[in-house]
Design a protein around this nucleic acid. Structure first.
Length: 880
RNA sequence: GGGAGAUUAGCUCAGCUGGUUCAGAGCAUCUGCCUUACAAGCAGAGGGUCACUGGUUCGAACCCAGUAUCUCCCA
């Protein structure tokens, strides 16, 4: 039988994924006999494709879920997608445009038909990609935030919150995305630092009499096109420069409309010219100033960011075109004083990238105060733990300063707001038109009203208004609040997501969970970092610095990519992606493969006695100690540490030491006992590795032995640490033995002797038990023909000291006495220095008085060891 | 402008309540090896004033204060 020298993932990954599905291992159902463990996926955009962030995020989820499954829990990972209203609608609009169709030429129904068609065609690609990664989701549970059941949940919640008086409609300053043609929430606005221009404009002061020479006041603005919406100029009452203008009026440049000069301490005397143009319709602060001073509001913007007829000038031009033109005209009219560059912050839309225009509009809002309070308490009390905990601070600050949530969007793709307007302009809120009609008849007292008399609100709800219900709605907790699934799987256990959406999504899920089930939606929130390139830049399409995850999987194998991504991604830390990481991951799979290949190739001779008791006993101790460490890492959500712990256990302890200890000579057979132990160790390692590397572990599991129909490592029991008697002693003795091995190997290296040149070793010690017990191990790993005890140093030998004992490797004719002397003197010098430092500590009375007894004891030991070592070295030197 | 966090080896990070020679890991580096499981490998080695300056303490990477730099969040 021949096994490939390198592991070939492409051959096995699809096979095992299919088999797991056929076996139904990923399916979960309420089972009172088992402990539930559930995770809901952060639903990716339905039209999205897998990127590196998804890879990291979903690998972590899969590790958690697979481990829980092996621990015998009823593991349930619910997959699904998000309808992502702005992003998807923008994509559909762009697609239609390519085909020569403008959105404005379509009816709502026609547009939605196109959108659904597109969703059916491209939607869910990302879920297929997740299968390539090995994600063990219960695919039968796949949900979509805009499917009928989930839409119903959204509408029910809207109606309920409206009844509770938490949803209201009002005119507010909103963040307007002119490209998306919709309002967006505060959380969807991204601030970008830029250099902006500050234009100093001259406003003519309205003269008392026509005879006076015209006077001007200079007002600075970064958005000169908004002067047509000005309703006042404000100055600080304490600003002596403007005292003469108190009560005056000024003319808007070019337009000539007269507006008052008002006084308010809000105006900063230092900033700009100390005079502030007041534009209530297009700036939040100005709006509040306007309210205070009872000023009118003039909105000069259309939905698409162009100027409307209220502007009077530049009507129909985009705001940026209008800005260029008005600057030109102002300059020509001599009304532009100067232009300065200054560092400013540009507000942009997260979804479309367009520059946000603050704008007054009529929107739906959800009051947050009532919802935020318990949601804050849940995190403060650690009922929900954030990993890493540093995010707790951020969470608190945000929750204490939360604003009402603007939940309406001027889009078509999404859940339409269930508000129905009566002919008189009032409205009712109801789940559907029939219910609305009932309410409308009651409200108006008009029994003649028909459904056709009612007009439903045109807006849809913010996407997050459906995703905040996700942990409940995926278990049908709104439709049927007492169903077995939701009772069993809710609250879920862990949520894995990006810190960017801590407020968008995580905080709101906590609110919804507490409001609708009186229980938090999850216990742990694991916040991943952002995947960046090796220069620390965010991965982006524009930069082209993001590898295609599917190419990576094809090249390095899903297991290699998964482990590569987890090698260096502690919670909350950004992952600097480097192809070296996935190479390391791939190399690790190959290492494991070859360990398997070695053991698989052994022939057994049943007559042979058990020859490797020391190795087996040691590795058993090592394995069980590591197991406990591993569980601790997992419990603390230290995924990289958990992986690294297994990595070293497999590579260093199992492959480099254990297998080398028990490996028979070339083509020699192995004893049955050793093979039995070795196979069992390997099986345990496969189990530990499975959550990280599901495919290769399943492949080896089945290659290693004939397996029953349900015997998969995927559902094998997670190993529990067994107590091994005398484990610390076993570990430290083997460690000492391996130090001797390293000493010999070092000499081989220094002297340029090959790894196999037969050598002998002599030790000068009274206590030969270690050498005796580990004789086989030391001889084999260091390739020694003989280990002896001596009383004096053999002639012509190289020596080393470890564990207070001096060892000699006789090397006739190859010794450079001078070099050897120098080496020994150096070592002696170091040992003396060490002795001095310990002595100094011990002769410090205060230390002796204050230090804890065990610390003191340790120092005394160190001193004794050092002195013994010095004596040995001195002797060797003398004998040279 | 307000707040939070960080600064440890070339890189990415550990280092729990101060105490095993002023520190660990992985990767990278260097040296030597095609030693029949693996060159996607083996063996060995080197590499750090724990950002800086003070303070507390018998003792500080760890506690305190200040300085510098960086990152993130909010305005």
């Amino acid at each position: 039988m021949s096994i490939a020298k390198t592991y070939n993932p492409a051959d096995v990954e699809a096979k095992w994924y299919q088999r797991w599905q056929e076996q139904g291992f990923f399916k979960a159902k309420a089972n009172p006999l088992k402990t539930p463990y559930s995770v809901v996926i952060p639903p990716p955009n339905v039209t999205g494709v897998l990127h590196m962030g998804h890879m990291l995020n979903n690998t972590i989820q899969d590790v958690l879920v697979r481990r829980a499954r092996m621990q015998g829990k009823e593991a349930c990972w619910v997959p699904g997608t998000d309808h992502a209203s702005i992003a998807t609608e923008a994509k559909v609009v762009a697609l239609l445009k390519e085909r020569g169709i403008e959105k404005k030429d379509l009816t709502r129904e026609q547009f939605l038909e196109h959108a659904w068609e597109w969703k059916e065609k491209y939607g869910g690609i990302i879920l297929e990609q997740l299968k390539k990664l090995g994600a063990s989701c219960d695919w039968d549970r796949t949900r979509f935030t805009m499917e009928p059941e989930l839409t119903e949940a959204v509408l029910r919640v809207f109606v309920d919150l409206h009844q509770k008086g938490l949803i209201y409609r009002g005119i507010r300053m909103v963040n307007w995305d002119p490209q998306g043609g919709t309002a967006v929430s505060d959380e969807e606005v991204v601030a970008k630092d830029t250099m902006a221009k500050m234009y100093h404009l001259r406003y003519e002061v309205v003269a008392d009499s026509a005879q006076q020479a015209p006077q001007f006041m200079t007002v600075a603005t970064s958005r000169p096109e908004t002067i047509m919406a000005d309703v006042a100029v404000a100055v600080n009452p304490n600003d002596s420069r403007y005292t003469h203008l108190h009560g005056a009026k000024v003319r808007i440049p070019l337009l000539g409309r007269e507006i008052p000069v008002i006084l308010d301490e809000y105006v900063s005397i230092e900033f700009g010219t100390g005079a502030l143009k007041v534009t209530p319709a297009h700036d939040l602060n100005d709006y509040e100033l306007g309210l205070k001073h009872n000023l009118p509001v003039i909105d000069i913007l259309n939905n698409d960011g162009s100027l409307n007829e209220k502007a009077e000038l530049y009507v129909g031009q985009d705001r940026f075109a209008a800005r260029r033109n008005i600057v030109k005209d102002l300059e020509a009219a001599g009304l532009l004083d100067k232009v300065e560059e200054y560092a400013s912050v540009l507000q942009t839309s997260e979804r479309t990238g367009a520059v946000i225009e603050p704008r007054l509009s009529l929107q739906w809002f959800l009051k947050m105060e009532h919802l935020a309070k318990p949601a804050l308490a849940a995190v403060e009390s650690d009922e929900i733990k954030l990993h890493p905990p540093k995010f707790k601070n951020m969470y608190r600050v945000w929750m204490e300063n939360v604003h009402d949530w603007c939940i309406s969007r001027q889009l078509w793709w999404g859940q339409r707001i269930p508000a129905f307007y009566l002919p008189d302009g009032t409205y009712v809120v109801a789940l559907n038109a029939e219910e609305a009609l009932k309410l409308a008849r009651e409200k108006s007292g008009n029994q003649e009203l028909q459904v056709s008399d009612l007009r439903q609100d045109e807006d849809v709800l913010d996407t997050w208004f459906s995703s905040w219900l996700w942990p409940i709605s995926v278990f049908d907790g709104f439709k049927d609040p007492d169903n077995a699934d939701v009772n069993y799987f809710y609250p879920t256990n862990d949520l894995v997501t990006a810190p960017e959406i801590l407020f968008f999504w995580v905080a709101r899920m906590i609110m919804a969970g507490l409001e609708y089930r009186r229980e938090v939606p999850f216990r742990n929130v694991y916040l991943t970092g952002i995947v960046r390139d090796d220069q620390g830049r965010k991965m982006s399409k524009q930069l082209g610095n993001s590898p295609d995850p599917l190419d990576l999987i094809a090249t390095y194998g899903a297991d290699g990519v998964r482990t590569g991504m987890l090698f260096s991604s502690p919670a909350g830390n950004d992952l600097l992606y480097d192809v070296k990481l996935v190479e390391q991951g791939r190399n690790f799979t190959n290492k494991l493969w070859n360990a398997f290949r070695l053991t698989k190739g052994w022939e057994v001779d049943a007559a042979l006695p058990f020859a490797n008791a020391k190795a087996v006993e040691w590795f058993s101790a090592k394995l069980n100690t590591t197991l406990a460490e591993l569980d601790e890492h997992f419990d603390k959500f230290r995924m990289s540490d958990a992986l690294m712990t297994i990595y070293k256990l497999v590579w260093d302890d199992f492959c480099s030491f254990y297998l080398e200890m028990v490996k028979p000579a070339y083509q020699a057979p192995i004893d049955p006992e050793t093979l039995r132990y070795t196979t069992s160790f390997l099986e345990t390692l496969l189990k530990l590795l499975h959550p990280f590397m599901p495919f290769i572990t399943e492949e080896i599991w089945h290659e290693l032995a004939e397996r029953g129909p349900k015997d998969y490592v995927c559902v094998a029991a997670w190993p529990k640490p067994q107590s091994v008697s005398g484990a610390p002693e076993l570990l430290s003795r083997m460690e000492k033995a391996l130090e001797i091995v390293a000493g010999v190997r070092n000499i081989r290296n220094q002297k340029g002797l090959g790894p196999n040149k037969p050598l002998t070793l002599a030790a000068k010690t009274d206590d030969g038990t270690l050498l005796q017990d580990y004789d086989g191990v030391i001889r084999k790993l260091a390739a020694l023909s003989e280990v002896t005890l001596v009383e004096t140093a053999p002639a012509a030998s190289v020596s080393f000291v470890t564990g207070g004992t001096e060892y000699f490797v006789p090397l006739e004719g190859q010794i450079d006495l001078g070099a050897e002397k120098v080496r020994l003197e150096k070592e002696l010098e170091y040992a003396n220095g060490f002795r001095e430092s310990v002595l100094k500590k011990l002769s410090n009375e205060k230390f002796v008085q204050n230090a804890k007894p065990d610390v003191l004891e340790r120092e005394r030991h160190k001193l004794a060891d050092a002195e013994a070592k010095i004596a040995t070295l001195q002797q060797s030197l003398n004998s040279l």
